[in-house]
Amino acid sequence: MRRKAGSLIPIEVRILAAGLAFRGRGQPDFHGFLVAKEIQADSGARQLTAHGTLYKALDRMEKAGLLRSRWEDADAAANERRPRRRLYEVTPTGERALADAARAERALGAAGSRADRAGASQRGVLEGA
C-alpha cells in the first residue's frame, strides 16, 4: 500500500514525538535504543520496537529530512567503554510534519464527531417518525 506523499506513518509519528519529548526534557538528541525505550513506555507495548522496523524508519526519516544524525565522538564512547552511538535530532521539517499530522488527526476526529452527531440526529428523526 502506497502512502500519501508527506504523510507520516505511526512509527514515524512515535519517533518524532519521542524526539521532541527528549528535547523538552533538555536532551536534544537520542540514539536508537533510547527512542525504542521511549516508544515502549509511551505506548505500553510489551516489546521494544524491532531492530529492522526502527532502523529502517530512522534511515528513511533522515533521508526525508525529518531527522538528522551524527556519530558521537569516539572518545566519549571509549571513556564509557561502549560502542559509539548514532545520535539523531528532530529537524524543523520533522517538527512541522508532526504538527501537520496532529492537525490532520484532529480534523479527522472532528469530522468523525460531526458524522456521529449527524447519524444520531438522523436515527432520532427516524425513531420519532
Partner: peptide
C-alpha cells in the same frame, strides 16, 4: 555499528 550499539545499550 548501529546494531552493535543497540545490543550493548539493551
Amino acid at each position: 555499528a548501529e546494531i552493535d550499539s543497540d545490543l550493548w545499550e539493551h
